Simulated scan of single mutants.
Amino acid sequence: MNAITQLAQVGTSTWLDDLSRERIESGNLSEIIASKNIVGVTTNPAIFAAAMSKGTAYDAQIDQLKAAGVKADEAVYAMSIEDVRAACDLFADIYQHSAGADGRVSIEVDPRTSEDADATLAQARQLWKKVDRENVMIKIPATEGSLPAIADALAEGISVNVTLIFSVPRYREVVATYIKGITRAAEAGLDVSKIHSVASFFVSRLDTEVDRRLDKIGTEQALALRGKVGIANARRAYAVFTELFDAATLPEGANLQRPLWASTGVKNPEYPQDLYVRELAGAHTVNTMPESTIDAVLAGENINGDTLSGRAQAAEDLFKELENIGIDFEDVFALLEREGVEKFVAAWNELLELMEARLS
């Protein structure tokens, strides 16, 4: 028994927010699955950019791709798909034992198409087909332009990790999109019990932006509110999750779309490293973390049960207090979504530049 298994008892699955060829080939991923009770993996363009820019693990495949004359973006996806496929195989037993809820490995569509639903859907189909593993999840950003692609992908039987969610209003749209997509899948005669989805709510980035604004306000009241809104926002989202799915009429056999807490490595070193884990434990949730955060959780104290349920009113009160001292949340959430896409696009472009150099 450790803190990760205690999280699992409460209902929170722990996924690793990282993947690389080196982790797979060295046996590191297998080892942390066994020793740290990790039951899934998430990736993004920044993760693959970091993995492919160092070491020699990709050299042989790059040489093969160079000889084949492939373009940089094709090479990046060829290598990413190989890593994701191998990771899916390592998680196959967990996938079977959890009835498909866990043992999942996520791979993201090109972030440059986030406002183009048709292009996003086309790539989601392509990645789903090329990875060719039931336990893959295709990550699609929760931008206004991509929401139709999420519904269409689900309707076709593709399991989707809806990413880059910051606000509760957008989360409500994501849940409505999931229900629409899974209903269409059932109407098409698909086995909806095999279609899974998570809604990835970003946590620490909200604290970083709001803390910056609180520091600028500079009053004693403002400074006392730093480091609190990320958790409060997630708790508000969890209350909405409970509200909406309690009221929803899902097709027979359909799964809940679980909230996934992302960006849970603290950005401020003054905050406890496990802050966004211990305070966000609850039924039907996932927490994806960098390994340093996983290690901090394992080294820390026991998990104190459910820290999500019954916290919505306190969270709402905190938001009102922040609004009263001048925090414009409409502006905050719009900025975070825009920056979230821009950061992934920048990482993707950096990776393409690196690969073009390697291929030439």
Rank of each mutant, 00 (worst) to 15 (best):
D207K: 04
A281L: 03
P259K: 06
A149V: 08
A334R: 11
D102Q: 08
D274T: 03
S204F: 09
R213S: 08
D191V: 03
E291I: 13
W261V: 00
I94M: 04
E350F: 06
L354E: 04
A86W: 15
E323K: 14
F91Q: 03
R235Q: 12
I47H: 03
L308C: 03
A87Q: 07
L280E: 04
L29V: 01
T43C: 06
Y238N: 02
W261A: 02
A239T: 00
S197Q: 11
T56I: 08
V210Q: 04
R212N: 11
E144W: 15
I150L: 10
V84N: 06
D328M: 07
L147N: 04
A119I: 07
K36P: 00
S98I: 01
A299T: 00
L359I: 06
R21E: 14
N44C: 08
I94N: 07
A50D: 11
E291K: 04
A51M: 05
S114F: 14
Q123M: 15
D118C: 09
K36F: 11
G40H: 09
V168W: 03
A234D: 05
A51C: 05
D295N: 10
I38V: 10
N44I: 08
E156R: 08
Y178K: 05
S114W: 10
D191Y: 08
A222N: 12
A199K: 03
A254L: 03
V229T: 10
K139D: 00
S13I: 00
L250G: 10
Q313K: 11
A299I: 01
A299W: 02
L65N: 05
D328T: 03
V198E: 13
N2H: 10
A188K: 13
A346I: 01
F319H: 11
I138G: 01
E356A: 10
K54G: 07
T293V: 02
K66W: 09
A46Q: 07
A357R: 15
D328E: 08
W15I: 00
A60G: 07
D152T: 12
R184A: 15
T120Q: 04
